[in-house]
């Protein structure tokens, strides 16, 4: 068992453990911190899968921007861990069983995924910035421009929703 396999499996174990801790920890701040760890372990998977550009984007956008936004809102709202009302136990058991059934049915559906026709030695340079940038600005230039419009409208929407109403201020 080589280094790459050990790395892949241990990153998988870390991401699953921290994802479970996100769901089951009582304090929302702990959940956010565990989710940051999950995102870092997924970023590590991107490195060993030769997706270097997406590794950097994952660190900057997810672990940096999005999780800081979550942490910021969580601290702004000043929630303590014990204020969240719990669902009753029957409902909890039902939701765990439902998640498990989803997992089992998807696994059953994906049986035999291992013997797919994959190329023997795929190009390992596709994840570099040069290659992705050329594709982004040639084939995907219209979606790229549309995503800038989406960002602008999202920004305007966030400000509009977040600001206090005029009658509240007076």
């Amino acid at each position: 068992m080589g280094l790459s396999e050990i790395l892949a499996y241990s990153l998988g174990v870390v991401s699953i453990t921290t994802a479970l801790l996100v769901v089951f920890s009582k304090n929302p701040i702990h959940s956010v911190l565990y989710l940051i760890l999950t995102f870092f372990s997924i970023a590590g998977q991107y490195v060993i899968l030769n997706a270097q550009f997406l590794f950097i984007v994952q660190i900057i956008v997810y672990s940096g921007a999005i999780m800081v936004l979550f942490l910021f809102v969580l601290m702004l709202l000043n929630l303590s861990g014990d204020t969240e009302p719990q669902k009753d136990n029957v409902f909890k058991i039902i939701s765990v069983v439902a998640g498990g059934l989803l997992f089992i049915s998807m696994i059953a559906m994906l049986k035999g995924i291992g013997n797919m026709n994959l190329p023997a030695s795929p190009d390992s340079q596709i994840g570099l910035v040069k290659n992705l940038g050329q594709l982004l600005f040639s084939k995907y230039v219209i979606p790229f421009e549309l995503s800038s419009v989406l960002f602008l409208s999202g920004m305007v929407g966030a400000v509009m929703i977040g600001k206090k109403d005029a009658e509240d201020i007076n």
């Binding site: 994802a19 996100v22 769901v23 765990v96």
Partner: peptide
């Protein structure tokens, strides 16, 4: 599946 379980839980 863990994400779906969290949304339900």
């Amino acid at each position: 599946s863990i994400g779906v379980m969290g949304v339900l839980l």
